[in-house]
């Protein structure tokens, strides 16, 4: 009887956690865990800078040529770097079983998923945005275009995390999952690339960039509403429901 009461009490206690508390607990847990494995934080950024460095070496150091394609290079490098970080969202939690416990818990699953995606964006998206601002001058990107690039990245990197999380959830624990994740993500984010790069190119020509930024915002809202549903169902399927 005491045993039963213990289980009942702990169940009630678990149920009494407010959604906000749940969200922040998962968020801070993931951020702390991510901060501890520093190489996983730094490696994608180093990769990003290396990809950017390869272009001047391949094309030549002429300022005019580099300036024309600088937005394209930065965005392609950012997409590649961020698709390499996707494996980290669910892998360790899947391998030690804590993900299964989270999904089995009586709480609202979309919140769990949302907290994990937000943590991923803070750990991988935000450093990437800062890195891009440092890398822009390397490719002679003019200052007013750099501002537009910053806004496209602020709107675009959360989309990368959201769509990446779908691919990450679908491919958890699969052989050579990194390659597979890139194959699944890249076709889905091509619109993002088109709008972002054309926004920066318009800014360089002194044209208005509102249209592209609105499109990016719309895609972000769509991804925010639909991606957590897809991620949660994918997690349930991959964990065998």
């Amino acid at each position: 009887m005491a045993r039963y009461r213990y289980f009942k009490d702990s169940f009630v206690k678990a149920m009494s956690v407010t959604p906000l508390k749940l969200f922040s607990t998962i968020l801070f847990r993931d951020i702390f865990l991510g901060m501890r494995s520093q190489s996983e934080l730094v490696n994608p950024l180093v990769f990003f800078i290396m990809v950017i460095t390869m272009f001047p070496l391949a094309i030549g150091p002429e300022q005019a040529a580099l300036m024309q394609i600088s937005a394209a290079i930065v965005w392609v490098a950012a997409v590649l770097a961020s698709s390499l970080t996707i494996d980290g969202i669910f892998r360790s939690d899947y391998e030690d079983g804590s993900l299964e416990q989270m999904i089995l818990s009586p709480h609202f699953g979309y919140l769990l998923v949302g907290a994990k995606i937000l943590a991923h964006w803070i750990l991988s998206g935000v450093p990437l945005v800062i890195m891009v601002l440092l890398a822009g001058p390397l490719l002679y990107l003019p200052e007013h275009a750099l501002k537009t690039l910053f806004f496209t990245l602020i709107l675009g990197t959360p989309i990368l995390s959201l769509i990446g999380a779908i691919a990450g959830a679908l491919t958890m624990g699969v052989r050579s999952s990194g390659m597979l994740q890139a194959l699944l993500i890249l076709p889905l984010i091509m619109p993002l690339l088109i709008f972002s790069v054309s926004a920066v190119n318009n800014a360089m020509k002194g044209l208005s960039v509102d249209g592209e930024l609105y499109f990016l915002g719309a895609i972000l809202v769509l991804a925010l509403t639909l991606a957590p549903i897809a991620v949660y169902s994918a997690l349930k399927i991959r964990l065998g429901e």
Partner: peptide
Amino acid sequence: TAARAGAILALVGVVNIPIIHYSV
């Protein structure tokens, strides 16, 4: 499991196809 994971991917693709089409 593969079929159902694929179903999620296909549905995500269906949402994306109009966006891809018009952006391109």
